[in-house]
């Protein structure tokens, strides 16, 4: 092994070690919910389209579903601000997973854990100028682990939609006279 290769290997080993040490530092882990960057969705003027948003919950944590089993539990809910002349329609939440936890083994809670996806119906009006439009909002959630709960948080959410012109209606051929070809 030449000197450069040896030094490179040493540096790589050092980086890997420091990363491993950093990840195992003591201290209680805090819950995290993150959103995957949403790909650009193309929607036709005047027609509804669906945007899918993917979220991931840190391992060891769960959050209430959109329909928790008790009214005092805080549901996961997305609020969006739509650009002018674009309507945000129904937001579809996945059903929660019925799960029981060590703190209440006899009770089932409706929760999300791991990954979950929300669908947002977007309907641009006919008069929207074809262009890209940014949607911004917040996902409100409240996380717990097996022994403790964390105050509600709001995750900033954003995604972009490209509005394109509706294709021209297909041209109808004018009715031909039966006497046209003689």
């Amino acid at each position: 092994m030449n000197r450069t290769a040896f030094v490179s290997a040493l540096v790589a080993a050092f980086f890997l070690t420091t990363i491993a040490v950093a990840q195992n530092m003591p201290g209680r882990k805090l819950p995290s919910v993150t959103m995957s960057p949403a790909p650009l969705t193309t929607i036709i003027q005047g027609k509804p389209g669906t945007v899918e948003l993917h979220f991931r919950i840190g391992s060891g944590f769960h959050i209430n579903s959109n329909t928790p089993k008790a009214e005092y539990l805080i549901p996961t809910a997305l609020k969006l601000d739509a650009p002018t002349d674009i309507v945000v329609g129904k937001i579809t939440y996945p059903p929660g997973e019925d799960a029981s936890f060590p703190f209440a083994p006899d009770e089932k809670l409706s929760v999300y854990s791991g990954e979950f996806t929300l669908s947002v119906l977007v309907r641009p009006l006919h008069n929207v100028v074809p262009s890209k439009y940014m949607f911004r909002g917040q996902l409100k959630y409240q996380a717990c682990d097996n022994a403790a709960c964390y105050p509600p948080k709001q995750l900033p959410v954003e995604f972009e939609v490209k509005i394109v012109k509706a294709p021209p209606p297909p041209k109808k051929n004018p009715p031909q006279s039966p006497h046209a070809h003689r």
Binding site: V7, V11, F14, V21, A22, M25
Partner: peptide
């Protein structure tokens, strides 16, 4: 010099670990 590069890399990674901590 690769040794200098190595030292710089280690210092940077130590700073990263410190920042993370």
């Amino acid at each position: 010099d690769p040794v200098v590069l190595m030292v710089v890399a280690m210092v940077v990674s130590l700073m990263l670990v410190f920042g993370f901590h």
